[in-house]
């Protein structure tokens, strides 16, 4: 067969000779790939999610490491050395029972942790300190502070910046006027869909002051990419002063220039 240029042939030979070594390297890379830090969880709820993440990550690394180890062991140890026919057994019932039962145990453990975390993250306080009605629309957000007459409104070019207090329970009441959107703040490790005809409630307790980027993450059409917002978390006293400035509609004045 003469259809490959020489370099292809030589590369093929090299590949065959070292067939398993790079597999090992790439598998290692794959593992370390997920070892990333999450964005620092800026809410109490997000902190719990981050803890759960750590457990899941270690379990996943353990399971994947064990399975990669077994596969690579087979590749290295059982490569063909002679023309003899290898043993032809087809089952080993105790081993099969074990590799069914152990994973059941692992997922039961992970589910227990999941359930405990979810209860906390989804819990809504009977009386939140601050309530904000958030309305998603194509393609921006409206933040309404009921009882104060304050509204923060945005457009794709001028994304809204909404004030929130640190250390208090902030209730978000979320809905959409047109299509499905989603309210996502990466630093809080949290999102919730904004669905037309459905009102969702959840609580956030922010731990430190800062400006947190929010994004729409449910595809909503033409300008989905630019459907961003910011939450400006400030100490409670500053938040109260902002509220006391009286009823008004706050528009973002700085045109957002990034893409």
């Amino acid at each position: 067969m003469r259809m490959d240029p020489g370099w292809v042939r030589r590369a093929g030979v090299v590949c065959r000779r070292y067939a398993s070594a790079p597999l090992l390297a790439v598998a290692g890379l794959g593992l370390s790939g997920c070892a990333s830090p999450l964005p620092g969880a800026a809410t109490v709820q997000g902190q719990r999610i981050a803890h759960l993440w750590a457990v899941f990550f270690l379990s996943a690394a353990g399971v994947a490491g064990a399975v990669y180890g077994l596969i690579l062991w087979c590749i290295v140890r059982y490569r063909r050395r002679s023309d003899g026919l290898p043993p032809q057994y087809r089952d080993n019932i105790p081993v099969e029972i074990m590799y069914t039962a152990v994973p059941v145990g692992i997922v039961a453990f992970l589910f227990a942790l999941t359930y405990g975390t979810e209860i906390h993250v989804d819990r809504v306080a009977p009386r939140p300190d601050v309530t904000i009605n958030v309305t998603a629309f194509k393609w921006s957000w409206l933040f309404d502070y009921p009882g104060t007459g304050i509204t923060v409104a945005g457009t794709p070019d001028y994304p809204p910046i909404a004030m929130v207090p640190v250390g208090r329970t902030v209730r978000i009441v979320l809905t959409s006027t047109d299509v499905v959107h989603a309210f996502y703040i990466p630093s809080f490790l949290y999102k919730r869909d904004a669905t037309p005809g459905l009102v969702q409630r959840f609580d956030l307790e922010i731990r430190r002051p800062g400006e947190y980027l929010g994004e729409c993450v449910e595809f909503c059409g033409f300008d989905h990419t630019r459907m961003r917002f910011w939450l400006r978390a400030v100490p409670p006293a500053q938040f109260d002063r902002w509220i006391e400035q009286g009823p008004r509609v706050v528009h973002q004045r700085v045109r957002y220039t990034a893409p």
């Binding site: 794959g30 997000g46 759960l52 996943a60 596969i71 490790l189 993450v217």
Partner: peptide, 25 residues
């Protein structure tokens, strides 16, 4: 080798609190 990473990350996204972070990212 590849599908294994799809599998273990599948267990992560099957956990609702983790999904709250990573869904649609």
């Amino acid at each position: 080798l590849n599908f294994l990473l799809g599998g273990v990350t599948g267990v992560m996204v099957a956990s609702p609190p983790l999904d709250y972070h990573v869904e649609d990212t």
